[in-house]
Nucleic acid binder design. Structure first.
Length: 476
RNA sequence: GCCCCCAUCGUCUAGCGGCCCAGGACGGAGCCCUCUCAAGGCUCAAACAGGGGUUCGAGUCCCCUUGGGGGCACCA
């Protein structure tokens, strides 16, 4: 049984790199009829913001990533929140000490010092303390951390499904802290204990853990546990190649949704950032992703996150919606006045194939509410053979024609105006152009003249045409 | 400073020694269609970082250089 996990720490919002990790863990588990476990890594008391756990739940839910076990979904491997597992870590820390896998370190601030001087000590002086010396310090009540005792000799080799075989010298590995002086475990310790105890078969996580993996494996070996399979994921960068960061407010899932992207489009997009199905498909629903997902097709190199392709995918997903679905999703984006005055279901049918982001909608329909001020030369259009004079002439003739129409509906309008064009020997475009301009005041509109006329209704359409006629008379 | 990893069009990518004077997609340019725009159809421009090897043959294997990323925290 495949068991994967997504193990975020609740320190803020969910950026798309994290979301992709969650997605891949989910896709892989589901692809193999396995389970996805959600584990909350809140062992850093300074950075943890408990209220942001909600963000994680929300994002996963919106993305459609369903986990099988988690903090509020017990599957027998709990608790799923690391701060609630402290006794477990203490127990294994004691065992590590007994087995000589770890030792107590009484140094203070060594990490800071090392970082500052750039001189990294991989072996801590406390490593060679005798049991008597250790006992003495314990008796004095000196605070301590527990460090991993990494062998000086030999090399460590492991296999990663993305990066292949990786070998490092043990002497290049540092004696990392396993248990902090506040009694909380570090990630480096907790992840090993939890992944083993929770029966995780495949560890899917970011590339930043690749270089620590040999140390984790030493721990697994020391405890006599089998190591999981590893799938390290290359990073997602922003357009300039820099790493995405929370600090700089880079693309979070929530931001993207607020910008008018559909969750399924974002999911589709990030799935393709670093993975491809092996054929030329690009549009995927979540079930289709599950069916197609294969870790052997994950890329090694990092990918940069760009909005332009997401725009396109989003427009594809918008179009894939049924008219009714789109209408429901678009509804909140319409100005209240538009909902009152017009048939927004009809507008939705018109704009569905033209919307890129949902936030485009207000701007797109604004002209229906207020005829923009527009220059009279909008009526001049070479390709449609439309001039000021022809426009005036056509609008004057169209007025009574439209007035006398029995049904005010797109098809009827179209037929009448096309017939009129034929009778007068004009191109359809020559007739339609001035009408569309007159009733929209825009060069480009989300629909043709007759479609817009239908939305506007007879009264408003005629009012706008009349208005245009007087403008044109003045200009002529 | 030390260690590890990565490197194909602007971007996402296909390519696992000959099928590649490198394919697809987004974006760009143009044409067609058309009641504008969008959609759709067609066409074009656009890449194997550089240098050495190995091989009959290299984008594909090896080495070096360069560039980029990650790690070396009592953060995850």
């Amino acid at each position: 049984m495949v068991r994967t996990r997504f193990a975020p720490s609740p320190t803020g919002y969910m950026h798309i790199g994290n979301l992709r990790t969650a997605l891949y863990a989910y896709l892989f588990a589901k692809r193999h009829d396995g389970k996805l476990i959600l584990r909350i890594e809140d062992t850093d008391r300074k950075r943890t913001m408990p209220q942001t756990i909600r963000v994680i739940y929300n994002s996963l839910e919106l993305a459609g990533i369903e986990y099988d076990e988690g903090p509020e979904k017990d599957g027998g491997y709990g608790p799923y929140t690391q701060s609630q597992r402290r006794e477990i870590y203490n127990r294994y820390a004691a065992e590590a000490l007994e087995k000589g896998l770890a030792y107590r370190c009484f140094c203070t601030n060594t990490g800071e010092k090392a970082a500052k001087t750039k001189v990294v000590e991989r072996r801590d002086p406390c490593r060679t303390l005798t049991p008597e010396q250790v006992q003495e310090r314990l008796n004095q009540g000196q605070p301590f951390v527990i460090r991993q005792r990494v062998p000086d000799e030999g090399t460590s080799t492991f296999h990663d499904h993305v990066f292949g075989e990786i070998t490092v010298k043990n002497s290049d590995l540092d004696d990392q802290v396993l248990l902090k002086s506040d009694g909380f475990p570090t990630y480096n310790f907790a992840n090993v204990i939890d992944d083993h105890l929770m029966g995780i078969t495949h560890v899917i996580r970011g590339l930043e853990y690749l270089s620590s993996t040999p140390k984790y494996n030493l721990l697994y070996a020391g405890f006599g546990w089998p190591t999981p399979e590893y799938i390290h994921l290359p990073h997602i960068t922003k357009e300039n190649g820099r790493k995405l960061s929370k600090r700089e407010g880079d693309a979070s899932f929530e931001d993207l949704l607020a910008k008018g992207y559909l969750p399924q489009a974002v999911v589709n997009y990030i799935a393709l950032l670093g993975w491809n199905p092996g054929d030329e498909r690009e549009f995927f629903t979540l079930p289709e992703l599950i069916a197609a997902f294969d870790i052997d097709r994950i890329n090694k190199s990092s990918a940069s996150f760009t909005l332009v392709k997401l725009d396109w995918l989003n427009s594809q997903h918008v179009r894939a919606l049924s008219p009714e679905e789109f209408y429901q999703i678009a509804l909140p984006y319409y100005p209240a006045e538009a909902v009152q005055r017009f048939d927004v279901a009809a507008i939705s049918r018109l704009i569905q194939s033209r919307v890129i982001r949902l936030t485009d909608i207000p701007q797109m329909v604004d002209f229906l509410l207020r005829l923009p001020d527009f220059p009279v030369d909008l009526f001049v259009h070479e390709k449609s053979k439309s001039t000021i004079a022809s426009s005036l002439n056509i609008l004057e003739q169209a007025l009574p024609l439209l007035q006398s129409l029995e049904t005010w509906e797109n098809l009827a309008l179209q037929e009448a105006l096309k017939a009129f064009a034929q009778q007068t020997g004009l191109k359809t475009g020559t007739v339609m152009w001035p009408i569309r301009i007159a009733i929209s005041g825009l060069l480009n509109t989300p629909g043709g003249a007759t479609e817009i006329a239908e939305i506007l209704g007879r009264e408003e359409t005629l009012r706008r045409i009349n208005q245009a006629v007087s403008c044109l008379r003045q200009a002529a």
